[in-house]
């Protein structure tokens, strides 16, 4: 039998970079061997353990960009350099592409970390990258300076308040943009309804689209059953998080609802939602 273990490894925070008022990037010296799109289970001892997309992995160091949203992430964002966290993984599927391809990356809000990692890796393979980022306001745009300085990356920005780039949603002109630029693939990560729209546009234009799905998870390795998707019952942590739009088209719940820690459906458009 294969020698398998799923126990957290303790890692020390080497560096913290404040990205926006509620987002920080944490760097760890650790050989994670992850690929863009994969995630780790990040453990704040005594509080919780949460899935987190890898934002960068440079062999001897990896980074996680963390939004202070829930109990654990809020507390993690208060940690200091030298503090310790546990990690398990990497888990899940990765973005797929070939050397020299033209990729269109569509990031919504705080969904850009895995696309940021993908950008660095794809540039090494001489890909051409159109990076489209949308956010409510310019203060919520991640990695702006780094992305602006990367050769081979064309940055396109939209903000709903018009504080930077085009005013409106990143999906507003997406169809025209893709038609004109004809990328080989589209990769997207962000709010589910945005990704659903990106998938529909990709399907319409017949451009292969890869979507990073987020679901509530406990184990990360296919046992707890919390992240399964209806009606196929496949597990997001094993068959995802990165899935093709063609697969997601068979998963009715995508864009409709997600499930909470007790397995109860939570609809995206439910006005009574907490």
């Amino acid at each position: 039998m294969e020698n398998k273990t799923e126990l957290p490894q303790i890692v020390e925070i080497k560096q913290i970079v404040t990205e926006t008022p509620d987002i920080k990037t944490f760097y760890f010296d650790y050989h994670l061997e992850s690929k863009p799109g994969q995630f780790v289970m990040l453990w704040l001892p005594g509080v919780d353990e949460v899935p987190m997309s890898v934002a960068l992995d440079t062999n001897n160091q990896f980074a996680l960009t963390i939004y202070a949203r829930g109990d654990a992430t809020k507390k993690i964002c208060k940690l200091k350099e030298g503090d310790k966290l546990g990690i398990r993984g990497p888990y899940g599927t990765m973005f797929n592409y070939k050397e020299g391809e033209h990729l269109a990356l569509v990031g919504g809000g705080y969904g850009t970390p895995p696309l940021y990692f993908l950008t660095h890796e794809a540039l090494k393979k001489e890909c051409k990258i159109d990076f489209l980022i949308g956010a409510h306001t310019k203060e919520k745009l991640l990695y702006l300076k780094t992305l602006q300085g990367l050769e081979g990356v064309n940055l396109h920005i939209a903000t709903t308040d018009g504080s930077l780039g085009e005013k409106g949603h990143i999906t507003d002109n997406l169809e025209n943009f893709l038609q004109e630029n004809k990328p080989d693939r589209i990769m997207t990560c962000g709010p589910e309804l945005l990704m659903k729209k990106v998938g529909e546009i990709g399907d319409k234009l017949n451009i292969q689209t890869q979507i990073s799905v987020e679901r509530y998870m406990k184990c990360g390795f296919g046992v707890c059953g919390q992240c399964t998707l209806d009606p196929l019952g496949i597990r997001t942590c094993v068959s995802g998080p990165v899935m093709s739009s063609k697969v997601l088209n068979m998963l009715d719940e995508f864009g409709q609802y997600t499930r909470d820690a007790q397995g109860k459906k939570q609809y995206f458009n439910n006005p009574n939602k907490k």
């Binding site: 039998m1 294969e2 020698n3 398998k4 273990t5 799923e6 126990l7 957290p8 289970m41 453990w43 509080v47 919780d48 353990e49 949460v50 546990g86 406990k218 184990c219 390795f221 046992v223 707890c224 909470d260 820690a261 007790q262 397995g263 109860k264």
Partner: peptide
């Protein structure tokens, strides 16, 4: 019924240990 917070499942090659805590809607 709420289950326990994470971590809830750990494994080695020989055993799995869980305290998921029976979450259910």
């Amino acid at each position: 019924h709420k289950g326990h917070p994470n971590p809830t499942i750990i494994t080695t090659e020989h055993w799995m240990m869980n305290a998921v805590g029976l979450p259910d809607a």
